[in-house]
Amino acid sequence: MSRVRAIAIPVAAAIAALLGVSTSAGAQYAWGGWGGWGTGIYVPQQMTQAHPVVRNVPYRVGKWELPKPVGTYVPAPPAGAIGKAIGGKQYFQAGPDFYLKHGQGLIVATPPLGGVLDRVPIGSESIRVGAVEYHAYNGAFVRRTPKGFEIVPAPVGAVVDKLPEGATETKIGGKRHYLAGGAVYRPYYRGATVVYQVVEPPKAEPAPK
């Protein structure tokens, strides 16, 4: 028997992003005095695997299907999925979702660097770093390139509400950071909400002689 892991986790955030509302304002609305007077739809910030407070928020909005959260299990490749080798792994891609084999079925993986989408994923979070617009979903960043919408390394300076799946905690210069997909994230407060900013990786320590 396959067990479906908690789906729906970043979905509410994705849904809010779909409407172009600021998730930080949303959080402020929930937490702040007098309801915070925020302008935004409230978005739960703590929906993580480790803190599964809300499950099964519908991830289909009307006719739009949102990207499936990382870890979603399916018994067979979805209709229209195309096999693609990216970075030495065999993926099945269906829209913005990249599946890897998992037991008898497939599981949604973090979108791999070099993967290409034909459109901006619905519900992705639009993030501007300098003059460049990125779209974040499922712990990955998408940018328009001649190939299409390509999954690129996390841009330094971007702020996201949620760490990619599998991020690991570490200390850099005595401060807490997280490592995920080759990028370094540093936690900050944005209002009363904990967010994560992509920062420059630390310079390699000079090798001891």
Binding site: G33, W34, G36, W37, Y189, R190, G191, A192
Partner: peptide, 20 residues
């Protein structure tokens, strides 16, 4: 400076909210 407020703090002080 930090962009947050304490829930219902408006009840006990002259508040940013009171301007509203």
């Amino acid at each position: 400076e930090a962009g947050f407020s304490i829930p219902l703090i408006d009840l006990v002080c002259v508040r940013p909210g009171f301007e509203r």
